[in-house]
């Protein structure tokens, strides 16, 4: 009764087409992203030149980390947004969404998922390709060259790393969506959810790893940052990609992502029920 998988895949596809539709904006986004990535890479390379091995990364590791961040930055919506729900609440169009025989939360998850997939490709592939020409990147294929402890051997390890990275990115997206959806839902009660969005952006920028790797933060702050959901959006997927985590540490990181995703999505579900109740009792 709540809508089929095909429904949500179609929603995701529509959303993806929507975000891919504006060619000029897409090209401009990819270009800007590449340029910023290059600037960030040179800045951090200077730092790592002074302090080699800082935070457990070598030079090629930190450059790769930068471009992973560039790939994930809009996909994970580290600057907030991506979910049009507040706009629809304000305009009253949410009434029409409620009238559909589909799950409200899953609808928005599919919608945001389509967006994230497109942006991962647009913001991920071209900048990474350019970066590969300019810098020495560490891709999961370059087995054994790691100076950071991890040595995944053989072709199976490579595929495994890519697979784990995909899982980690997917979980990171669920965490990102979960948080942003909760914030978006508050628009049912608050006249303006933008204050909360700003707080989210601030936290995401400093605590996800997009500014600097969380591993270079001092003790307690690092511990806190690594436990918060923001780490799940960027730091953890990047570490999985770079092979910086192995064994129990790898498992713990993925479990942390999955745990946050579960908690946030369940909260979103509960809050959706309350928002619906508010809407049906109080009106639009």
């Amino acid at each position: 009764m709540r809508g089929s998988v095909a429904t949500y895949l179609t929603v995701a596809r529509c959303s993806a087409r929507r975000y891919a539709g504006y060619r000029a904006a897409t090209a401009a986004g990819a270009f800007t992203n590449t340029v910023f990535g290059i600037i960030r890479a040179y800045v951090l390379l200077q730092v790592w030149h002074q302090q080699p091995g800082l935070g457990g990364y070598d030079a090629s590791g930190v450059v790769t980390f930068v471009f992973l961040g560039q790939a994930l930055i809009t996909s994970m919506a580290l600057f907030g947004g991506g979910i049009d729900l507040p706009e629809r609440v304000r305009s009253g169009a949410v009434t029409m969404d409620m009238a559909r025989p589909v799950s409200f939360q899953t609808w928005w998850l599919a919608d945001d998922g389509g967006r994230a997939a497109v942006q991962l490709i647009i913001r991920g592939v071209p900048p990474m390709a350019v970066a590969a020409l300019l810098f020495d990147l560490r891709l999961p294929t370059s087995v054994g060259t790691t100076s950071t402890g991890m040595a995944s051997a053989g072709i199976g390890g490579v595929i495994g790393t890519w697979g784990l990275f995909a899982v980690s990115v997917a979980l990171g997206f669920l965490v990102s969506f979960g948080l942003r959806y909760l914030i978006a839902l508050t628009s049912f009660w608050l006249l303006d959810q933008r204050g909360l969005e700003s707080a989210y952006t601030l936290c995401a920028v400093f605590l996800s790893g997009i500014s600097v790797p969380l591993t270079i933060m001092p003790g307690a702050l690092r511990g806190l940052a690594e436990a918060l959901p923001f780490a799940a959006m960027m730091q953890i997927p990047a570490d999985v990609f770079l092979g910086n985590r192995t064994g129990a540490s790898l498992f713990a990181a993925i479990a942390l992502q999955a745990g946050w995703a579960a908690v946030l999505l369940a909260s979103g579900r509960a809050l959706t029920a309350r928002a619906t109740r508010k809407l049906v009792i109080q009106g639009g």
Partner: peptide, 20 residues
């Protein structure tokens, strides 16, 4: 108001409804 997808061809919205 509209239930149609603003940025997409009309046909896409119809196709989505087929699934919904």
């Amino acid at each position: 108001r509209t239930t149609l997808w603003w940025d997409l061809p009309l046909r896409d919205s119809f196709d989505l409804l087929r699934h919904i």
